[in-house]
Design a binder for these strands. Structure first.
Lengths: 204, 204
DNA sequence: GTCTATATTTCGATAGAC
DNA sequence: GTCTATCGAAATATAGAC
């Protein structure tokens, strides 16, 4: 909350406009490849002015991280404490897919700046926060699930992630609805418990 | 080719040892988060010595990039000029999967340093090289293929990529053979031409 | 081939005026 | 809230001795 702003109804705070520009640049050139001057310039200010709104460059990155963190918090709440199965995983992915399509840039930010996030994460003693990414990887490593099921779970996520983020704009010609339906179909194929046709597969 | 080395049979050249250390650090901390001093120190030399073997820090990154580029060149050759179908895509992925498991670090390097690669790639006027990544994305964007097929192709790649690179060490307990078999199964499920309804599956 | 300097640049961050 | 000016640190890269 930067001070005693007078415009109650201004469309977006300066703080938010800084974050929007930073998000674009961090996705495009990377966190380390972006200088504060490059963030300030399109906003018509100098880099010194940024320090009125953020105490450091890393604070800008962490503020953007919070946007993802909030999605994860909500998502974890919808899962509740149901045991993880191929079916519940499908429901989770369905929710996640919508979030990813709506907040594309935030996910791209994290995909393209893993090293920077890890560095800042360690510096700041911010351990002990129930992170969605942590839960995700912990679940995939849960040895009480079969390797078969876990590969399917990771793979189903990978289908969505790759189509949306690693394929460039390969699917920009498809409508969002068409893409979402195709992704659902692919995810369902992966998570469907194989019917025992001909041979019995045992994946307890 | 650094000069007139006297040890013909030395296990690895200094140049290669520099690249090996740099690869580890670039994967762990990122290209921008790694200084030349951090590369030189574990090798028992000073950063100035690195300039005898490489003309710049970016040259080290590009030398590592060449390792991936060579894989891609070989891979593209195996594809030949066959038209891309779900079946040929499966064969390609099978080859690619083996390469990925054998050369894990090189792929991790590219996954975690996309911004740095793009920056260096643009600076160096190295356009005009038949890049595997370029071919990959171009193929996925080929509008002569149906969206359905292209989503399946991107997704099948995503299954492999995610299990091997985005899941941390979630599958480190599984044997490489077990993991490879499971990935093949998942890929086949995605690329199998859907039978009309309960009809015959044709994967010749 | 590797070293000890050092040049040069850029960046994050601060001080203080307005 | 934003500016000008500057500090201090760290990085890439070079020069020249050995």
């Amino acid at each position: 909350m930067p001070g005693t702003g007078s415009d109650q109804a201004e469309a977006s705070s300066t703080r938010d406009r800084i974050l929007d520009v930073a998000l674009d640049l961090f996705v495009e050139r990377g966190f380390d490849g972006t200088s504060l001057r490059q963030i300030a310039e399109p906003l018509g200010m100098t880099k010194a002015a940024l320090y009125y709104h953020f105490e450091s460059k890393e604070a800008i990155l962490m503020a953007l991280h919070m946007r993802l963190h909030e999605f994860g918090r909500v998502l974890l709440a919808t899962v509740g404490d149901e045991p993880v199965t191929l079916e519940t995983w499908g429901k989770l992915l369905s929710e996640l897919m919508d979030q990813m399509m709506a907040q594309r840039k935030i996910f791209l930010l994290h995909e393209r700046n893993q090293a920077a996030f890890e560095r800042v994460h360690n510096k700041s003693h911010q351990q002990e926060h129930e992170d969605f990414e942590t839960w995700f990887r912990t679940t995939l490593a849960d040895s009480s699930l079969s390797v078969h099921d876990r590969v399917r779970m990771a793979g189903a996520f990978g289908v969505v992630f790759t189509a949306l983020f690693l394929s460039g704009d390969a699917f920009s010609s498809a409508t969002p609805d068409e893409l979402r339906d195709e992704l659902h179909g692919a995810v369902d194929d992966l998570l469907r418990n194989e019917p025992a046709t001909g041979a019995t597969l045992d994946h307890s």
